[in-house]
Design a binder for these strands. Structure first.
Lengths: 335, 335
DNA sequence: TTGAAAGCGTTACCAT
DNA sequence: ATGGTAACGCTTTCAA
């Protein structure tokens, strides 16, 4: 028998229990009066038929589902899985589910996902994409929070990249680098731009040389290429600020390959603190973003918007921290 | 004006175009006769109102959505993002969207996700979880394919772990290791068990010593711990077979920390070829699973099931390959 | 070629 | 405390 078993409906439950669908609906939703005995009958019927309510019908009637759309550039980029978990864990607790899509920074794909999210009556959206048709054009039809790549949305959650850049630069300097090279990421990715600006701010005011290598992307492949250029163009470099851990890893790899001693000859600081960073050898010193927490906060903010609760902070900035590992030298602290 | 703009419905389009909803529906779905002029009128109305059909209402009527449920143990585990992309990319092309959940190997959570997937009328499911209530108990209500952790489902896609284990063992031996330690993963994860069995098969028939260290989990934390034990209990080890790249990375890190020369003193082979592996230093030699391809094939298989097309292979096994990097010695090949 | 109406599984209003 | 029923937005007979 290959038949797909038909799901029991509220009507089946009603007739099984010998009551009306309205009554079943009431017990399902725990609202309205229902006699104790009736309650029991209904519950039994539900159990007997292994009934569970059809969310689609509910969504149709209520004109909103229990679904949230999550839009990411690419889950394959190690920065995003934790973000996604932060979002999911928080939402899941409240009974919401995730409709999920990767846009690959492709505006058409992004728009296609947004459209289908909307068509599926999601109650809200969280987006970590750059281009985000979410904020341009049509007025927000549903609550939306922008995550990480925030470019001036109404509701945003992001880490303090500017300060991160400053911290990184300071750490490098205080640990003795005088000749610093910055790997600068694409200017259109706002958090990446911020960390660069922060670093330059400090570097410009300090008594050190520095150079900038501009990258067109944040792919590992490009980073490998740039790392080679770096060591040939600026052989005197004794400190490197990478725009993220991925590129830091590529630089570290190349440095080791050509026999540089890390951190003695060259110090390296990354950005993000992706899970891999501690597994590199030497383990990568980096600026940590509280990624999971960011996802979580975005979800909490969205939840408030959905429930129309008062939100005190529309733009939530989370602090970053320096994670000292082994691509930077120890600093002597007196005290 | 803070109003949430109400979406146009098929009725709005109908009255705008001066036709009936039935006609609009026909043009929407491109089925049934509709006069050229009527067609144009309707299309204009659609454009004018910026109408797009409500998927929820469609799903309700058809009793199935355009949604597919994807169940993963943990997207945060670097093995899974590529799997997910393989699945998504394939499904996305055909207009299906992903409802996504992480089970954390927790049967209750898993069941909860499955339930809501079903309540949302997904057309199919893909699951990479171990416990999968998907195959036990109730008859499959909807098409389901098991991915990676396949434990005898009806429709499965997985890599040849057994052969992978054999290959790894052979490579280690042919490159001169005589004293091999195996890091064995939890026995209840089938693909992990397979690769162990494959390795033992070869090792047992070869003229080498070998030891097994049993791990209770595949977390990096435990791997770090076990790595320490490994080098203190079996200091003579000159070859290590890890149950996945994550634990290989931990072992590599520890080996380097205590001053072992890799690969001269100790060779290491991982399993999976997660993106990080090539970034380690030395880059990790490993057994590669075609993860993206696995996801893709699972999606294709599911698509066939959904469309009730003939499926020739219910269980798709994909080959693994040895990726030679720098944690193994070069082997001299004469020819 | 087009339209009226039933029905998908719920919820919520209004009676009773 | 309970039931009848309209409505949510769509698709699909069936008639015209």
């Amino acid at each position: 028998m290959e038949r797909t078993k038909k799901m029991a409906t509220i009507r089946d439950v009603a007739s099984e229990a010998g009551v009306s669908v309205a009554t079943v609906s009431r017990v399902l939703n725990g609202k309205g009066y229902v006699h104790e005995d009736t309650l029991k009958k209904v519950q039994q019927a539900i159990k007997k038929l292994n009934y569970s309510p059809n969310e689609v019908a509910r969504s149709l009637f209520k004109r909103k589902s229990k679904l949230v759309g999550l839009l990411l550039p690419d889950i394959t980029n190690p920065f995003f899985p934790e973000l996604a978990r932060g979002v999911e864990d928080e939402l899941q607790k409240q009974g919401f589910r995730l409709l999920f899509g990767n846009s690959d920074e492709n505006p058409e794909k992004e728009q296609a996902y947004i459209d289908t999210f909307l068509q599926n009556q999601v109650v809200g959206m969280i987006s970590a994409t750059q281009t985000s048709g979410l904020h341009k054009g049509e007025p927000h039809v549903i609550p939306t929070v922008l995550l990480d790549r925030t470019h001036g949305g109404n509701y945003t959650v992001y880490a303090d990249g500017r300060e991160g850049g400053r911290i990184a630069a300071r750490e490098l300097i205080s640990r003795g680098s005088h000749n610093i090279t910055l790997l600068k990421g694409p200017g259109n990715i706002s958090p990446v731009q911020d960390r660069f600006l922060g670093a330059v701010e400090v570097l410009a005011g300090a008594n050190v040389d520095f150079h900038v290598i501009q990258m067109a992307s944040l792919t590992y492949e490009e980073a490998e290429q740039r790392a080679k250029e770096l060591f040939s163009h600026y052989p005197g470099t004794d400190g490197i600020l990478a725009s993220n851990d991925m590129t830091a890893a590529a630089v570290l790899h190349e440095a080791l390959r050509i026999g540089k001693s890390i951190p003695d000859e060259v110090q390296i600081i990354g950005f993000d603190d992706i899970p891999m960073s501690r597994l590199l050898f030497p383990a990568l010193s980096t600026i940590r973003q509280p990624v999971y927490e960011m996802g979580k906060q975005a979800a909490q903010l969205l939840l408030k918007l959905i429930k129309k609760e008062q939100v005190t902070e529309q733009n939530i900035q989370l602090p970053v921290t320096f994670v000292e590992r082994n691509t930077t030298r120890k600093v002597k602290r007196d005290g």
